[in-house]
Amino acid sequence: MSTRARWGKRTTFLVGYTLAFAYVFPFFLVFVNSLKLKYDILANPLAIPLSITWENFQQAYTKMNFFRSLTNSIIITVFSVSLLIIFSSMLAYYLARTKTKLTKYIFLVLVASMIVPFQALMIPFMARFAQFVSWNNRGALIFFYIGFGVALSTFLYHGFISTIPTEIDEAASIDGASDMVAFWKIIFPMMRPITATVAIINALWIWNDFLLPRLVLTNETQTLPLSTYLFYGQYSIEYGQAMAGLVLAVIPIVIFYLVLQKQFISGISQGAVK
């Protein structure tokens, strides 16, 4: 390797690590301060705590109803994502395999709808669905997520199905499989990679979503981002507790990411190419 190339590599190395440090530093700062007493935080936020206190975590855990909001987040995310996978894979299969003017038109409407920002319809949306929401707000939220997520998910599946040869469908139907059976037993398992993409992209969106849950959910059904926001708003003066609350809010998704890191990255890059 030439000297110049080696220096280039060293610079990249240095810049890369400095940036990586900067990217995680805010999380580090929050974590360090969640272990301190209020006075120590104000005295020097950067200092490593001399004596560690877990009191902040106990307080935050109870006050933000951590367990309840975590359960709500999990329920809402799991149901919405599963239903989105089922419905949009079927819809995409139908649209990709049945080539008529109507299916072409439907597909175009779906693609065009992705440009509509939620804010453009939230006002009539809330007026129209107020009753549905007050009847069962978690159910309503899941229903809304299907409506808002179906276009992108169908679009991703559609691109993938086009690469599966139609001979496979024909072979299945000659063997006497009904179209439902053929789809779920043969086609759907072949779409595993794109299903992973659809699952990850939607899960990240729904898990972290704030505006729609804020409009729809009540105290008992709060998700994690909502309860974090409200908790922070109430207790931001209690720095230590507020920091502990933030740590609790961040931990579940970070663990999930570290376990499924490869799938996350490849899922997002798959979604980006389409």
């Binding site: 940036l19 990586a20 990217y23 995680v24 805010p26 999380f27 700062l29 929050v30 301060n33 935080i41 104000l42 005295a43 020097n44 936020p45 950067l46 990240l204 898990w207 972290n208 979503d209 704030f210 981002p225 974090t228 926001y229 922070y232 931001s236 720095y239 507020a242 920091m243 933030l246 809010a249 961040v250 998704i253 970070v254 990411y257 996350f264 990255i265």
Partner: peptide, 28 residues
């Protein structure tokens, strides 16, 4: 590392930085 901030929703990130801008940096 670079991808981590993306996992966390905007509200939680916003609140983290509110602490940084309002308290941590001012104290320092």
């Amino acid at each position: 590392f670079f991808f981590v901030p993306n996992l966390v929703g905007g509200v939680v990130l916003g609140v983290i930085w509110q602490f940084i801008f309002n308290s941590a940096i001012v104290a320092l």
